[in-house]
Write a protein that binds this DNA or RNA. Structure first.
Length: 738
DNA sequence: GTGCAGTAATCGCCTTTGTGAAAC
DNA sequence: GGTTTCACTTTGGCGATTACTGCA
């Protein structure tokens, strides 16, 4: 849409558009009106252009305020002066101007472009401000909260499903469909081989009996879920969409669950769940095992999400109806029946399966009723590159609906599983004794009564975890609990001592992890109440962290001098407890700032005493007692380190004198406070009594009976002049006073 | 198929001795 | 007018970690 606009070029910078804050939109429309009217007046040059007046101009005219007329006169004068500068040109208008109803609404939201003195509301891209740290932290917390909530809800979900599998009616329905021969095989004897044979037949029958419609619950990238949820306005809308989604694994109630068994079709998850009920109906001790697929708590790097969005879906059976069509969705990938694909022996592992307890071997056997694997727990671990199935929480729900964490049985990388469970605690959180959320949550969810069976299972999983052989890939040495390579040492880590060498990989020596030691700067050790032994040489030099303005200056200086600003690091074995200089001749050993560092109690100088009372320094000064502020920590404000003090340090002999004086001072302060309080009480009472007296006087003057009488007096005087002074409304006494 | 270097993104750690205005 | 208290502030660089790509 192109419109011809009357514009006036600025004398100093012709044709150069400038912008103005959108908050001035009202003013803008007023000016627009003025401009339009000027256009009508200046017929010589503007007449032929008037016909080209756009809809927005008309709207802006309507929106103009009459109060602007005074301003208009002033502008008219200017207009005459600048008439020669008027110019016309064609400009491209945004499409939305075609709908004039929307203009008013949009005016505030859009950017005003001042083109000379004609202001055009244009749809311009907003300036994307850098996300603040607060916003980032909020989003991070939100993601974490969603992750936690999702884990809890998934546990509740599987507890409910397991409860359905335990239901007596469900058992009856199961018994009505199980072939007799399978029942007979399972009831034969309790040996492991007999149990396996029985289950094998049952699984074979089940694979043919139950038709798979989709994969069930899978992990979805955070951004995909966020977009998905944003698409619904209400919770009901969302629930409705899931009820109609065949792969969403939504089952309304137990009846619907039983109906799926009767109709012989459902998702992969449902199949495994119903199979647990089938096994229970056959008299087996069964656990329903679920590998929870919660919403991740962290967003992967954008490259990840980008490629994830462009890659073909991992599970070809996933519903694609609501997804955008990408280039790759060409006929290269033909539709594969989930009932065929998911049941293949080499198919990707499911997220729900079963465990059957064998009383003979006293252990739990893994049953994958989907792919038909029996007692093969290692096959339940998804590939590292599988984006829709991650192992973090593998929970088993038994026939009493008790929960057991069996993750270690199903993953070769328990560290990764732990990382996926929860955000790692920060150093401060660990120091503060905080426990990971998942640990606390599982302690509440999992059953606490440990039986002999549980103990054996725990030991078996422990053994499995400790069976770790020396890695054959360099990358696998990173964070390995037993072995370490020099290349993977962190900034504040060294190998001490550099022996024994346990082996080598591609020419690199392998050291025991126990030889990896953390080092620290002398300043950091001082904060721990330690000092570097005399004559010790730094074991490592690291780049200094530049945080404070002073450090920044030093760094700049170092840069100019042509060397990096580095700092010496020492190992713990190179330190000894810090011994502060003692009090000599009653003189406190203050530092250059007039304070004493007291990061740990052992930093208190011999012969001195610490009094951790706020404000006591003032009293000490009053009494002429020498003291130093006790610096216990640092705060960092505006790129500056600010010492945090906790009371004062005085020489030991003066401690009690000062404390006695402090007691007296406190008592005197208390007496003062009581006196002040009493005074305040008297003032309040006085105020209250005065208020009550005034109220009583007002009530007396305006009480209803009095008012009726006065109103009657007023009406009787209607013919003549009313007593404006109040017609006697004021009490007589007051009138007299007046 | 596997290992590895490089890359990009996220996120937490580190930092070590003020300042100005308002209230008292 | 001197002293004390309080609010100010979410910086910014770096390293660890992770997941991916591309190459050997």
């Amino acid at each position: 849409m192109v419109a011809t606009r009357r514009t006036r070029k600025r004398k100093n910078s012709p044709g150069e558009p400038s912008t103005q804050s959108s908050s001035s939109s009202t003013q803008a429309s007023k000016k627009m009106k003025v401009e339009q009217q000027k256009g009508q007046q200046s017929k010589g040059k503007g007449k032929d252009r008037e016909d080209d007046m756009t809809e927005e101009d008309l709207v802006n005219i309507q929106a103009a305020n009459d109060e602007q007329e005074d301003e208009e006169d002033d502008i008219e004068e200017d207009d005459e002066e600048e008439d020669d500068a008027i110019d016309w040109e064609n400009i491209q208008l945004p499409l939305r101007f075609e709908n004039q109803d929307s203009i008013k609404e949009d005016i505030d939201a859009d950017t005003l472009t001042v083109y000379n003195d004609v202001e055009i509301v244009m749809k311009t891209p907003r300036v994307v401000l850098k996300e603040s740290n607060w916003e980032k932290a909020y989003q991070r917390n939100l993601r974490q909260w969603m992750h936690h909530s999702h884990v809890v809800l998934l546990i509740a979900h599987y507890k409910l499903r397991n409860e359905w599998c335990l239901n007596a009616n469900m058992k009856n329905v199961c018994l009505s469909v199980i072939p007799d021969n399978c029942m007979r095989l399972l009831a034969k004897d309790s040996s492991e081989s007999a149990l396996k044979t029985g289950i094998k037949w049952l699984v074979k029958w089940w694979q043919e009996f139950f038709v798979l419609t989709g994969p069930g619950l899978l992990t979805k990238p955070y951004l995909e879920v966020e977009n998905h949820y944003n698409g619904f306005k209400t919770l009901k809308e969302w629930i409705d969409s899931h009820q109609s989604d065949q792969n969403g694994d939504y089952i309304e109630d137990l009846e619907a669950f039983m109906q799926l068994l009767v109709s012989k079709a459902g998702t992969r998850d449902t199949s495994a769940e119903v199979f647990a009920a089938i096994l229970r109906a056959c008299g087996c001790d069964v656990r329903l095992v679920a590998s929870l697929q919660p919403l991740p708590y962290k967003i992967p790097p954008s490259t990840t999400s980008k490629t994830a969005a462009e890659d073909p879906p991992q599970e070809t059976t996933e519903d694609s109806s609501n997804k955008p069509i990408f280039k790759y969705r060409a006929p290269t990938k033909a539709y594969v029946d989930p009932n065929v694909q998911l049941k293949e022996a080499k198919a990707k592992p499911p997220t729900v399966w079963c465990e059957v307890y064998c009383t003979d071997s006293k252990r739990w056997m893994t049953i994958d009723p989907i792919r038909g694997h029996i007692d093969k727990p290692t096959l339940m671990e998804p590939a590292t590159l599988n984006r829709t199935n991650h192992i973090s929480f593998v929970l088993a729900f038994d026939n009493q609906n008790k929960v057991t964490d069996v993750t270690r049985r199903y993953t070769s990388n328990i560290d990764k599983a732990m990382r996926l469970r929860d955000r790692p605690l920060t150093r401060r959180e660990k120091e503060g004794g905080m426990k990971p959320w998942s640990e606390t949550m599982l302690a509440r969810v999992c059953h606490k009564k440990i039986t002999e069976r549980d103990r054996l299972e725990y030991e078996e999983m422990e053994k499995q975890q400790s069976r770790q052989v020396m890695p054959s890939a360099i990358g696998a040495f990173k964070n390995h609990p037993l072995y370490a390579l020099e290349r993977h040492l962190l900034k504040y880590e060294v190998l001490h001592p550099k022996e024994p060498v346990l082996g080598s990989i591609r020419g690199e020596k392998i050291y025991p992890r126990s030889n990896v030691k953390t080092v620290n700067t002398a300043v950091n050790f001082r904060k721990q109440g330690k000092q570097i032994k005399t004559g010790e040489q730094p074991i490592k030099m690291v780049n200094a962290n530049v945080f404070t303005i002073e450090k920044k200056r030093l760094q700049e200086q170092a840069k100019q001098d042509g060397y990096p600003l580095s700092v010496a690091c020492y190992g713990e074995w190179q330190t000894e407890p810090y011994i502060p200089p003692p009090v000599i001749n009653g003189k406190l050993p203050k530092n250059e700032y007039g304070s004493i560092d007291l990061f740990t109690p052992n930093m208190l100088p011999q012969g001195a005493a610490h009094i951790p009372i706020k404000g006591i320094g003032k009293l000490a000064r009053k009494l002429g007692i020498d003291y130093a502020d006790a610096v216990v920590d640092f705060d960092f404000v505006k790129m500056r380190a600010v010492p945090v003090t906790d009371g004062i340090i005085v020489i030991e002999q003066e401690k009690w004198l000062l404390l006695e004086a402090w007691d007296e001072h406190e008592q005197a302060e208390a007496i003062k406070a009581i006196a002040k309080q009493e005074k305040d009480v008297y003032i309040r009472w006085r105020k209250l009594i005065k208020s009550l007296l005034i109220k009583a006087r007002v009530d007396r003057a305006y009480e209803p009976q009095n008012n009726v009488d006065k109103w009657e007096n007023f009406n009787s005087n209607k013919g003549g002049e009313a007593d404006v002074r109040g017609g006697g409304f004021l009490p007589e006494s007051d009138q007299e006073d007046n």
